[in-house]
Computed example of a mutant assay.
Amino acid sequence: MIRYIETISVERGAAIPLAEYHLQRVRETLGEEPDFLRSEEQLVRLFRANRPAEEAGQYKLRLVYSAAGIEEVSVTPYTYDIRRVRRLQLVELPSDYRYDRKYLDRELLDRIAASLPDHETVALLTQGGRVTDTTFTNVCLRRDGRWETPDRPLLEGTRRRSYLDAGAISAVPVSVSELLAGRWREISLINAMNPLGRMILPITSATLFVAPDEPSESLDEAPVE
């Protein structure tokens, strides 16, 4: 049975700002509204039942689930500082690779992340000459004071969808050639845990570079989801 994950930001007082978007993704993933994940109240109960004693301003609620129900629940203080990211390495994906659901199995994405030179570098994924996202975030790019996001991400994140619904960002084609030519000036990485603007990098030759040539087996042998 296929297993999926949902990573949810919980703030002080058990507030879950993106609850409806997470529940919507679960419904779309399973093709139905499951009894075990249909309301924000259920998410809050899962958080409170597994909350650690350590106080934090933000927690990560991680669920592993399948069509049969919730299999694992963990709650941890969120301590990762995305602002430590200093460089983006362009990595081209196989043309047939898909990650349109938040699968627990992330073998290829994890392998790409593990191949990076240091913890300050993130893989900026491309497919067919177009930018998609990173191994753990969606991407927003600023041009002429406007924030835009690639229109073909591998995975449509909950925060990305919320910003699109609110009109805060717009989805546009983002080609690698235009990105390298300087069409966009800044980049911000977003996911359920990190809002737009928490991490912003200027797009320069010092922050954006192409991955060195690697043997084809490093990517092409990975299974397609």
Results as ranks from 00 to 15, higher is better:
Tyr78Asp: 10
Asp96Arg: 13
Ala53Arg: 15
Ala67Asn: 14
Val85Ile: 12
Leu104Asp: 03
Tyr103Ser: 12
Gly57Asn: 09
Arg45Thr: 14
Ala56Trp: 04
Leu108His: 03
Ser74Asp: 08
Leu90Cys: 02
Glu54Trp: 01
Glu71Pro: 05
Ala56Asp: 08
Tyr99Trp: 03
Ala67Trp: 11
Asp81Glu: 06
Leu88Gln: 01
Tyr78Ala: 11
Gly69Arg: 03
Arg48Lys: 04
Arg62Ser: 04
Ala53Gly: 15
Glu72Asp: 06
Tyr78Ile: 08
Tyr97Leu: 14
Gln89Ala: 13
Tyr59Lys: 09
Val64Cys: 05
Gln89Asn: 09
Phe47Gly: 01
Val64Leu: 11
Glu71Lys: 05
Arg106Cys: 08
Leu109Arg: 13
Ser66Leu: 07
Ala56Gln: 07
Ile70Met: 07
Leu61Trp: 02
Leu46Glu: 00
Leu90Ser: 02
Arg106Ser: 10
Glu72Cys: 00
Glu107Asp: 12
Thr79Arg: 15
Ser66Ala: 14
Arg62Asn: 02
Val85Thr: 09
Leu104Met: 03
Thr76Tyr: 00
Ile70Pro: 06
Arg111Lys: 11
Thr76Ile: 03
Lys102Ile: 07
Thr79Tyr: 04
Arg106Gly: 10
Ser95Leu: 15
Arg48Asn: 02
Tyr65Phe: 12
Ala49Asp: 14
Leu61Lys: 08
Arg87Leu: 07
Leu109Lys: 13
Val75Leu: 00
Gln89Lys: 14
Arg62Ile: 02
Pro94Thr: 04
Leu104His: 04
Thr79Asn: 12
